[in-house]
Amino acid sequence: MAAEDRPVLTEDRESDGTLDVGRGLDALDTPTEHRAPWWKRFATSVVPPVVAVVLFIVVWQILWASAIWPEFKLPAPGAVFGEIGTQLVSGQALSIIWTSISRAVLGFLFAVIIGTPLGLLVATVPVVRAAIGPILSGLQSLPSVAWVPAAVLWFGLTDQTIYFVVLMGAVPSIANGLVSGIDQVPPLLPRVGHAMGASRAQSARLIMLPAALPGFLAGLKQGWAFSWRSLMAAELIATSPSLGFGLGAYLNYGQTQSEMEVVIAAIILILVVGIGVELLAFRPAERRILRARGLATGP
């Protein structure tokens, strides 16, 4: 509204100068992201754990060869990997792993379905938080194995027993993750939403939930870990032909038969599944979510 009153020359010089400064500031202040070349990332992220595993096996082999402990206490690495190989070739390993994984995934999904609304309720309704918030945090430190005897008495040796133990392990983690995710949303964000006229539902869907996503994902990750270890505990203690033959039962079989290579093979398989799900499902999701927010560090 004032531009036409100004001498043209002044305006031009002035806006040009301003423009140059602005461009200079943009160029200088814009954060630059350095991404290391793939071989460097490979060398820093893949090589160290592989070296660690190889070293571990070498030490194990040396200890076995020095025959300090009898064979039934410390089997040769070769015998353990032979056992895993046999099970893999016969297809038995896949069936064992599938029995456990399908249970863990199903239990985890149930836990998400129960834990998410529970977390939302605790995070947003003060009375509910005061009433069950502390219990929910307390349940997180209760090992879910403690529920096995009760579950066996309530449900008998059925799948319900196993799912109950998995749920008791995973639901608190998932709900608490969502609660802390929502608690950590900067208060300015919902205020901005309010100032822009967001309704309660819009604010929840477009602002609060995406903002709480990193915390929720951390809760999901922990919930999965708890599902998996609760499942192993339940399968190990509650064994019955009616419950199928999962990794826990396989581990239990090794113990009753006093076959150390089976025991260690089972432990390795449990570990591999746990790490595999973490690496294939949670790590990529986490990286994507954090990188989009500029929170990811490292490769």
Partner: peptide
């Protein structure tokens, strides 16, 4: 107070989206 998970363009769109 930009929403960190949205691009600059989506942030500018947000009030229009709410409307």
């Amino acid at each position: 107070a930009l929403l960190p998970w949205l691009t600059a363009g989506r942030n500018v769109e947000l009030p229009l989206r709410l409307a």
